[in-house]
């Protein structure tokens, strides 16, 4: 294993911590700066695995990983599954339609039944905040949060940070503008924790109806004027606008949202010339982002997807790899 498993890049900052073995990953809020850097450094080594002709290492051979998804997801579930397979884990996908949850078995019972089959890791995606905490209280398996309600989506923030670091070499001192449905976004919450811990300067922009209560206490600069957020930004990150928000009267129409907040080539000119454009997907072209921007030279959206596999490999390896 040692010869096929590249050693984690020895960044000085990761000296203090070398493993997250036995831990859960419920959110970025629980991680220290050193632990985040350990994951990012490990992901660099993992990325190299993905560039080999034989994209497989035996790091999780004999370990069982259950991907338990209560919400539809293509990107995240596939990304986890590829990551698990590249680490040689035995993986199992369970997709549960949310509608059957209320009628059928409770989450706790589903978890207990899975536990009985002794998985090493459960990757959980759920529509309700705190679902991973509930599982972590019940289960001996390590829980990885693949997105819980409006709370956190830690591996998304980690892959975002990884992507930013690849382009900018650092996060410290960067101006990062996050624009979109802040109130309902778990990606936002994870990113705020992570970017703050790594010293970025975070601006957030949204219509006032989609601004979370107490946003200033998050340690970011909130604004309803998107141009202020984008001006001289090194990174512009767009969040998905969900159609049902319009029915909730958060804004009058997608058209008006696009006029006020949509990322157009003109607006992007306010950012630094070398700014990168990010989006966690799935994109609404013509709502939060103009296609010209999404497909333009500044866009790193597909790189984010590629990096997702490496970052998830790193997380799985650090939580569940090594000696049992």
């Amino acid at each position: 294993m040692i010869e096929t498993m590249p050693p984690a890049a020895a960044a000085p900052s990761s000296q203090a911590v070398t493993s997250l073995r036995g831990r859960h990953l419920l959110g970025i809020a629980d991680l220290t700066r050193e632990e985040i850097l350990l994951i990012l450094d490990t992901a660099e080594a993992m990325k190299e695995v993905g560039e080999r002709p034989i994209k497989k290492v035996p790091a999780l051979r004999g370990r069982t990983v259950v991907n338990l998804f209560f919400e539809p997801s293509t990107r995240t579930r596939t990304s986890f599954e590829i990551a698990e397979k590249r680490l040689s884990a035995d993986t199992l996908n369970i997709a549960v339609a949310t509608s059957s949850v209320t009628k059928g078995e409770t989450l706790a019972d589903t978890a207990r039944n899975l536990e009985a089959m002794s998985p090493d890791v459960i990757v959980l995606r759920h529509s309700m905040s705190g679902a991973c905490h509930l599982l972590a209280r019940i289960c001996r398996s390590r829980i990885i949060n693949a997105g819980d309600g409006m709370h956190e989506h830690p591996t998304q923030a980690l892959l975002d940070a990884f992507t930013i670091r690849e382009h900018k070499g650092r996060l410290e001192g960067l101006k990062v503008a996050i624009v979109g449905d802040l109130a309902h976004s778990r990606v936002l919450r994870s990113n705020i924790h992570l970017l703050n811990k790594l010293g970025a300067n975070v601006w957030v922009a949204a219509p006032s109806t989609l601004m979370p209560s107490g946003i200033a206490q998050f340690g970011v600069t909130p604004t309803t004027r998107v141009d202020e957020a984008v001006r001289d930004a090194d990174v512009v990150m767009l969040l998905r606008i969900q159609l049902e928000r319009m029915q909730g009267n958060f804004f009058p129409s997608l058209r008006e949202y696009f006029t006020l907040f949509g990322m157009t080539p003109a607006r992007l000119k306010l950012a630094r010339p070398d700014a990168i454009i990010m989006h966690p997907g799935p994109m609404n072209r013509g709502v939060e982002i103009d296609s010209e921007v999404a497909d333009g030279s500044s866009s790193v959206i597909l790189e984010q997807v590629a990096n997702g596999v490496a970052v998830r490999m790193a997380v799985l390896y650090l939580l569940a790899g090594g000696e049992a």
Binding site: A29, S129, G130, D148, G149, M150, H151, E152, A183, R186, R189, P212, S213, G214, I215, Q217, F218
Partner: peptide
């Protein structure tokens, strides 16, 4: 309760 704690935890607020 609608406020920083609920926002941080992603829980819907009651003002």
């Amino acid at each position: 309760h609608e406020g920083f704690q609920a926002a941080r935890l992603g829980l819907r607020g009651i003002p």
